[in-house]
Every structure is written in C-alpha cells, then in structure tokens.
Computed example of a mutant assay.
Amino acid sequence: MIRVLIADDEALVRSGLRVVVDGEDDLSVVGEVADGADVPDAVARLAPEVVLMDVRMPRLDGIAATRALVERRERTGAGAPKVVVVTTFENDDYVLDALRAGASGFVLKRARPEEVLEAIRVVARGDSLLFPAAVRRLAVAHARPGGDRLAGAGLTEREQEVLRRVAAGRSNAEIAAELFLGVETVKTHVAHVLAKLGARDRTQAVVAAYESGFVRPDP
C-alpha cells in the first residue's frame, strides 16, 4: 500500500484527489493539509511515501515545503517522501524550481485520473522517470547553464551512458537490457550518478544533465 498525503489550499481539489487515490487497492490517502507550512508535521505524523503538493499555497508554497522536507531528512536522517507537484501550468517557473528543490515530478490539475495514479506509482517505485518528455521540455526551456556541476562530478564513461539513458526515460530494466548489464548493476551505477551530482533522485539528475548541456534535446 502506497501512503499518500495531499497538500492543497483548495478543498475541492483535495476532495477530488482523495476520491481518485482512495479508489485504488494499492493506494491510500493518509491525510490532507491546506498549506505547505503544515506539510513537515503531517509527514512526521503520518509517514506518507508520496506527497501530492500544490505549488502555490498562501503561507508556504510547495517549493519551500519541498525544501523543508529535504532539510528535515538531512538534519534528522528521517526518510523523506517523494513529492509530486500538482500544478495548473506546465511551463511555470515554479515547477522547475520545485524539481530543483527535490520534487520527483509533476502533474497538471487538469490531468486524467489515470495520469495522477501513474505519477504516484512511478515516483514511489523510483526506478524510472515520470513523464520524461515533459521534464525535458521544462528543463530546456528554463535552463540555467551549470556545466561545472557535471564537468567536475567525475562520472565514469559507464555512468555517463547510464545518465543519458535515464534522461531518455529508460527504466533500470530497460537500461540493463540496452547495456547488457544486470539490473542490480544498473541500480548501483544510478546510485553513483546521483551521489556524484548531489541529486536526490533521477529527476534532479536529469534536470542537471539538460541544463548543463550534457544531454541535448532532439532537434
């Protein structure tokens, strides 16, 4: 069972998301909050695995709330849930800032219920990238060149091959098949890439790869 916390200042949105999520056998809404300022305490009490996080909330927005979760993890060593940003506008600067802060992906408020459910399951598994084409478009459109981050990361040739495939949206199993490696070996390479880039997850690594020019979008 994947435990989900909903953070949104609109009661109607929270209710709609709860209906969608609780209708699934493998998902459960463990709580709701109406402001980002209440997210850290709710996470500590309810231990969700995924937070559906509105970007714009009155006291503390979703970006700051995401940073607070990451800082809590670094300060206490407690596990931090994966964050899926729920937003109105796909190309909003706020969305990319949330990804940089540690969110694992985003969905639009107008998304179909099955897209929301897919988002929750994908980020909970953590072995593939949520909607890679959308993340790529966002990273390229709002790129803040940071080549030094990758140039000085010391990625091996194999780690670079793995990162390129992660950026293309491949899962660990798909990368293993393409590179003739075991899945556990791929997991190890991915972990090394994240550690060297200082990235919390695959999404942050991919954003860094596109922003730096290490991976270039298709023409």
Rank of each mutant, 00 (worst) to 15 (best):
R125M: 12
R59V: 09
E161S: 11
L12T: 14
V107M: 02
D201R: 00
T185V: 15
V162A: 06
L5C: 04
L130T: 02
E49S: 11
S104F: 00
L117G: 05
R67Q: 15
V207K: 03
G62T: 01
L129P: 11
G152Q: 12
G198H: 09
G182W: 13
H142S: 15
R136P: 06
G152C: 08
G36E: 01
V50A: 02
A11I: 12
F106V: 05
D97Y: 06
R125D: 15
D61A: 13
A151E: 14
T88H: 07
G213S: 07
A47L: 14
L5V: 05
A7K: 05
R100G: 05
E24H: 12
R67Y: 13
R14K: 09
E157N: 05
A195W: 02
M57S: 00
G105C: 08
A64R: 13
A141T: 05
V206N: 00
T203E: 04
R112V: 07
V13I: 14
R125Q: 13
T188Q: 14
P145G: 11
L155V: 13
D26Q: 06
G169E: 03
M57Q: 00
M57F: 00
V162R: 04
V4R: 06
L163V: 02
D25I: 04
D8Q: 09
E32L: 04
E178N: 12
P217V: 10
V206D: 00
L179G: 12
V29E: 11
P132E: 08
Q204W: 01
A124R: 03
N172Y: 06
A7E: 06
A208Y: 07
S128L: 13
L155G: 08
L46Q: 13
A173P: 11
A205F: 01
G213D: 06
A199Q: 06
D26K: 03
L96V: 02
D127G: 06
G23L: 10
V166L: 11
D92R: 12
V43G: 03
L69V: 08
E161L: 12
R158F: 08
V83T: 02
